[in-house]
Design a protein around this nucleic acid. Structure first.
Lengths: 258, 258
DNA sequence: CTGTTAAAGTGGCTCAAGCCAGTTTCTCTC
DNA sequence: GAGAGAAACTGGCTTGAGCCACTTTAACAG
């Protein structure tokens, strides 16, 4: 009758969850629609309220549904992803004056902006030092922390590490970079032109502080991207970590085969 | 006293969860260690067992901890990621005879292998047809479905779509491809050499059937990668969807700036 | 008509109890 | 000593009850 555990279907909470999931997948419950209340479900299925609640928790953990305190439980609506492409560092955007992030936001009908959270000079972690190949003699870096918004939603938390030997005396300590081509414009003037990028991509559940920073609803993972800029001499000179909420943003890579 | 909701700290379940989380983060509870049982926690904190249970659920949803029926709740151990690089299609691996996936597995001390789930000729979805730019006249594709394992764990579910006009008469309907360079070796003989790839990357919680396929523990997201192969004439000729469990695998992109 | 207030509805969290289903350990039997 | 079985643990799930915080609605007072 059932291919897996024969009783899984018969558990009251699973049964309620399965019924609701099916209603959502068939379109009987459209995105944004309100589910029956916990008390209603309990009544309909003849279970305790806690059991109906457990069913809703299952759907919440799957990301199908989102409860709102005092209002009800609603079918989650999926919004199109803002895709950050590897061409975001390409020179072709320099004419337009718009960053790829802002372009993508505009394409989705959203307003993009970003805020500088902090700028400081500090000792890097071992991981950062390793990626930037920092000598032990002067392992100091400039760290800039930004948050990117799409409309009101914070979607990326971005931390950039630049060796202090490169950042020193460039004005990168100021929130306003003051260069038409941004940070990478300044780094170019310092003799580092990006010729390659190396990015490692992971996905995971957010840590509690990331849930706060990014105002994350339940069951939304984050993309964790470690970006490394390589210059014309094949040396890494800039490291950035992107933590991106995965229900609103994604990545796009368009590259030649070598 | 508290920067966020002033009562969050005082909720018994949060308090237990916070204490346990701290014990994990400080190393007091090492990876693999067993947490106190639900009944013990309830006793220690003077709460109902359900409340201790709720605390453990919070940690489970964060991916910090994994309950095992009848045995206990254990601090999750993180294993190093098997990173699938964009160079996996590079010619440089043809000499070795080993695929990049197997190489990466070996690097982590694991044994990689894959199984063919199904091969069929069918009508593609609108999305697949759009990516492959299939004309409406003959929108038929070959679909191959594979599962990749690292040791005993299924880590990738891979679905490949090839226009039937290209796949016809190539032996790609057989599980055994019979070409030293695999599927892409055959496609090259048919006149399609990969010169670019375009991959869009998303992360999300798994659907129930993916949880089964990939034997996913709770709170593990999946990476959802849509790969498109572009040939020497700038035409797409092969589409592959990777669904990868994100706690064991990741992605790596090393590309020039154009 | 307008603004305030109360009521009714919602999810959030907890309690105390019970039964079930796995796993481990110990004990008894042969 | 080896094997079978019971006991004692573990988490999984449910019950039915209660109180709280938040939101919407309806009634009321001005």
């Amino acid at each position: 009758m059932n291919t897996q555990r024969p009783d899984a279907r018969q558990l009251p909470s699973r049964r309620i969850a399965d019924d609701l999931r099916q209603a959502i997948e068939t379109g009987e419950l459209l995105p944004g629609a309100r589910l029956p209340s916990e008390r209603e479900l309990a009544g309909q299925y003849g279970t305790a309220r806690n059991t109906a609640r457990e069913a809703i928790r299952l759907l919440t953990d799957e990301g199908l549904v989102i409860p709102e305190h005092g209002r009800g439980v609603f079918v989650r609506r999926e919004s199109p992803l803002i895709r950050l492409g590897n061409d975001r560092y390409s020179h072709k955007y320099r004419e337009s004056g718009l960053s790829p992030f802002l372009l993508e936001c505009a394409k989705q009908g959203k307003t993009g902006r970003f805020e500088v959270l902090s700028i400081e000079q500090t000792q890097p972690s071992a991981e950062v030092a390793r990626h930037l190949r920092l000598p032990m003699s002067e392992p100091s870096v400039l760290v800039r922390e930004n948050v990117f918004y799409a409309d009101q939603d914070p979607v990326h938390r971005v931390t950039t590490y630049i060796p202090w030997t490169i950042a020193e005396g460039t004005g990168l300590l100021n929130p306003e970079v003051g260069h038409p081509y941004g940070i990478h414009g300044i780094l170019e003037e310092r003799g580092h032109t990006m010729t390659r990028l190396r990015e490692s991509v992971s996905a995971r559940m957010p840590k509690p502080d990331e849930t706060r920073y990014l105002h994350l609803p339940p069951a939304v993972p984050v993309l964790d991207v470690l970006h490394l800029s390589i210059d014309q001499d094949h040396n890494p000179y800039e490291l950035t970590r992107f933590v991106m909420r995965a229900d609103l943003t994604g990545l796009l890579y368009d590259t030649p085969i070598e």
